[in-house]
């Protein structure tokens, strides 16, 4: 079953076509690394798959929902970690996660275990998010995604700002999610790390997909520039 199915998908940021005709099909349980230079359209692709951007032309289906007509249903089923953490500075860690769990109609009892899983110390649970370091905020934001138990994980630079143990935790989370049947689409510049994690790697440049390689074929040297041997 295809979790993501995009055909000639175009998405605009303002008037600029940040995605200029993307064709992509991702199946259940796949871990797909999205790579490419800055401004290539990686974050836009993740936001489109989250149902946050309008599909200007082309067709798209995410988790069986039409990307043109049924974006609210898509949003409810995905977990997106973007560049922003979507946390309220004046609320504590616990209050933030309780709020997002309630807003997403998720099980509030999962909050404590999610924080524990992300290595957020119990002594920090009642601390205002505004007092946390960037890495700690990132962990809390990831915990909010974990609480949602999404079918499709969309992780935009999930390793950014994390210490080595935090990066290891992200890898474990992704691997566990895939093992549980979820699909993961992640963009990362952590090439060595994500090579082991991803079952597939796509390269985005200029708003289109210029490379698509299945795990066994990935060679570290390919990653840096997205070699011309990539199959589109």
């Amino acid at each position: 079953m295809s979790i993501i199915r995009l055909h000639a998908a175009v998405a605009l940021i303002g008037r600029f076509p940040a995605l200029a005709g993307i064709d992509l099909e991702v199946g259940a349980g796949e871990v797909v690394l999205v790579q490419g230079p800055n401004g290539a359209g990686k974050s836009t692709l993740l936001r489109l798959c989250a149902g946050l951007l309008r599909l200007e032309s082309g067709t798209g289906e995410i988790l069986g929902h039409n990307l043109g007509r049924d974006r609210p249903a898509i949003r409810r089923s995905v977990g997106l970690l973007g560049h922003d953490t979507a946390l309220y500075d004046d609320l504590s860690v616990r209050e933030n996660l309780d709020f997002w769990a309630a807003a997403s109609r998720c099980d509030a009892s999962a909050v404590a275990s999610a924080l524990d899983r992300l290595g957020v110390a119990v002594r920090l649970h009642d601390v205002s998010v505004g007092l946390l370091s960037a890495g700690q905020r990132r962990r809390v934001a990831l915990a909010a995604v974990v609480v949602r138990r999404p079918q499709l994980w969309l992780l935009d630079e999930p390793h950014a700002g994390l210490d080595p143990s935090g990066r290891d935790l992200v890898d474990v989370l992704v691997a566990d999610a895939a093992r549980a049947g979820a699909t993961v689409l992640l963009s990362s510049h952590e090439v060595d790390r994500t090579l082991d994690l991803a079952s597939r790697r796509i390269t985005v440049a200029g708003g289109t997909i210029t490379g698509d390689i299945i795990s066994g074929d990935i060679v570290p040297g390919d990653i840096v520039g997205g070699s011309s041997s990539d199959v589109g």
């Binding site: 946050l52 409810r76 973007g82 922003d84 979507a86 309220y88 500075d89 997403s104 109609r105």
Partner: peptide, 17 residues
């Protein structure tokens, strides 16, 4: 500002409120 400072508006959309 509460909703725009750190992308909470998008998260509200994703939450399905």
């Amino acid at each position: 500002a509460i909703e725009t400072t750190d992308g909470a508006r998008r998260a509200l959309l994703l939450a399905g409120v």
